[in-house]
């Protein structure tokens, strides 16, 4: 009797077992279009914010682009239409990648002045600059230290930072130039920022999606920068920015902006405050998109960039003389 009951309940339980699968089938242009639209619809984190900012309506985008999808269209045409569709998000973190190409929304920097010239920068770095763990530095003629950080993609060693800051300690002030730095690892950016504060500082908040709804977000949690246990910069510092200061660099600039002795000089940063995730559509193309938004300490959005404390553009007069207007401005701020 016991045995019969056991078998009965076991079979009942087995019958209750059902498959857990994702509702994706087919590999036609329509299937790939629907899959891509759904990934953004359910996982992209700025749909509501961008609806408020510039009237993005993702359902309307579906209706508009569905008309351009036909079952007979080739891969190249499909890639073009899908790229245009995701560019509606106006997000440099959204990239559709295939063997044909990688789509990229470029308006966030193409529509603004470049504000950086490596040939003019070389006038300041001269020939005896030092490279250390991804940082390029020089002591300028006016005893101002200049560090150029081109990327946060590779780690910066603690020992290298100690050596660099120790060597520059004799200077009156420090310029950290993150122009054209497109980002990289958040942890690397925060490691560098931790050299510019002597106390734990609230630098912002971060949250993530908890479900497929446009407003399904976790409660934002505080993000702090704790002072590094290594050598820390104790004098005034200026961070130079332009529109190509993006992603993890945007986060670095936001952190530096919260510190007492740091001034942000240059152009508005490019933004990119959503931590990107990756997914893919049935034909194997991958899609990168913003998944977790980051905010400033007042819960303000950083997605479209951070305004500098001192707005400066490179002037053509200075450029003709081989001068970098931003570096010159930074030197004046640090000398005063």
């Amino acid at each position: 009797m016991i045995m019969k009951k056991t078998i009965y309940y076991l079979l009942l339980a087995v019958l209750a077992t059902s498959c857990i699968r994702e509702d994706i089938s087919g590999n036609s242009p329509e299937d790939n279009f629907e899959a891509l639209w759904k990934i953004i619809d359910e996982q992209y984190c700025f749909l509501e914010y961008k609806s408020q900012e510039y009237g993005l309506d993702w359902d309307e985008v579906h209706a508009r682009y569905a008309e351009r999808i036909t079952s007979s269209m080739g891969s190249e045409a499909l890639f073009e239409v899908l790229s245009e569709m995701v560019n509606e998000l106006r997000d440099g973190h959204v990239n559709l990648s295939s063997s044909l190409a990688t789509s990229q929304y470029r308006e966030w920097f193409d529509a603004y002045p470049r504000n950086f010239s490596d040939s003019i920068q070389s006038n300041y770095l001269k020939k005896d600059y030092v490279n250390s763990s991804g940082l390029t530095y020089q002591i300028l003629d006016n005893n101002i230290a200049y560090i150029y950080c081109s990327s946060f993609s590779d780690g910066i060693g603690d020992g290298n930072l100690d050596q660099t800051l120790n060597k520059l300690a004799i200077c009156d002030g420090l310029i950290i130039d993150v122009r054209n730095n497109g980002g990289g690892n958040l942890t690397t950016a925060q490691k560098l920022a931790a050299r510019f504060t002597d106390k734990k500082v609230l630098v912002g908040y971060m949250c993530h999606k908890t479900g497929p709804g446009h407003n399904d977000f976790s409660t934002p949690e505080a993000v702090y920068i704790e002072p590094s246990s290594g050598i820390r910069w104790q004098k005034k510092a200026v961070v130079l920015t332009n529109r190509r200061s993006y992603s993890a660099t945007n986060d670095f600039v936001n952190s530096m902006k919260q510190f007492d002795d740091v001034v942000i000089v240059g152009d508005k940063t490019g933004g990119g405050s959503g931590l990107p995730f990756s997914s893919e559509i049935p034909n194997g193309w991958s899609i990168r998109f913003s998944a977790s938004p980051m905010f400033d300490p007042d819960m303000g959005q950083l997605e479209f960039g951070i305004d500098p404390d001192v707005k400066v553009d490179m002037t053509s007069e200075d450029m003709q003389q081989g001068k970098d207007t931003m570096i010159e401005t930074a030197c004046r701020i640090l000398k005063n």
Binding site: A16, L186, K209, E221
Partner: peptide, 29 residues
């Protein structure tokens, strides 16, 4: 959680519903 990165869990040490109860309704194995 749904869109949560491991960076948030381990680097920022943010909380969340990381342990879920499972039974036949959500884990039929």
């Amino acid at each position: 959680e749904y869109g949560e990165s491991y960076y948030e869990i381990f680097s920022l040490k943010h909380g969340g519903k990381h342990v879920s109860f499972t039974s036949l309704h959500n884990s039929p194995s």
